[in-house]
């Protein structure tokens, strides 16, 4: 969401960040994102981040790769230039499987990585968005939406300070 505003706070460890994220959601303050030095078990649940949909892209890529590889091999070895290999049928399927498998993996992997880069806006020349200092280093940063639910009982900044977050500040998402 370009132009939306978030409130960020830095924590000393993952447990404090997890507690703050759970508390924020319980009190009507939506979590925008969390930035941590390493993957933290249970963070997606605590922050209410929905499961990734990259699996769908992966599956579609795999299906396309499989179809493309079978089509290419059948075309080259049975239609365009029928080749007799050891007296086997031109369309002998087992021989096509290894290449089809490899192309399936290739399409699935490239499709998934490509979709990730596009969705995460990680293209060359992009200026990185760093919501807090130390975010690429060892900081555990929790980003809350500045705009809270109507039922919220605290402001995002108050909540972060309650959980002893440091460097609490409001920033604009680029």
């Amino acid at each position: 969401m370009p132009g939306s505003r978030i409130v960020v706070g830095t924590f000393l460890d993952e447990d404090a960040l997890l507690r703050a994220a759970r508390d924020a959601r319980a009190r009507g303050v939506p979590v925008h994102d969390a930035f941590t030095p390493y993957p933290i078990h249970g963070l997606d649940e605590a922050a209410g981040i929905p499961p990734t949909r990259l699996g769908i892209v992966c599956f579609v890529g795999a299906a396309l790769g499989l179809a493309a590889a079978f089509a290419m091999q059948l075309y080259t070895s049975a239609v365009s230039w029928p080749t007799n290999v050891g007296g086997k049928s031109f369309t002998a399927t087992p021989a096509l499987v290894p290449v089809a498998f490899e192309v399936m993996v290739l399409f699935a992997a490239l499709g998934t990585v490509g979709a990730l880069l596009v969705r995460a806006k990680l293209w060359p020349g992009r200026k990185p968005f760093l919501p807090a200092s130390g975010v690429t280093d060892d900081a555990f940063v929790l980003a809350l939406e500045a705009e809270t639910d109507a039922s919220a009982t605290v402001t995002p900044a108050e909540l972060l300070r309650e959980h002893a977050a440091r460097h609490v500040q409001e920033v604009e998402v680029e």
């Binding site: 050891g86 086997k88 087992p94 021989a95 499987v97 290894p98």
Partner: peptide, 12 residues
Amino acid sequence: WFSQYMLIWYAN
């Protein structure tokens, strides 16, 4: 399963 089958099928 496929590795065993295909190698034997291919070499014949």
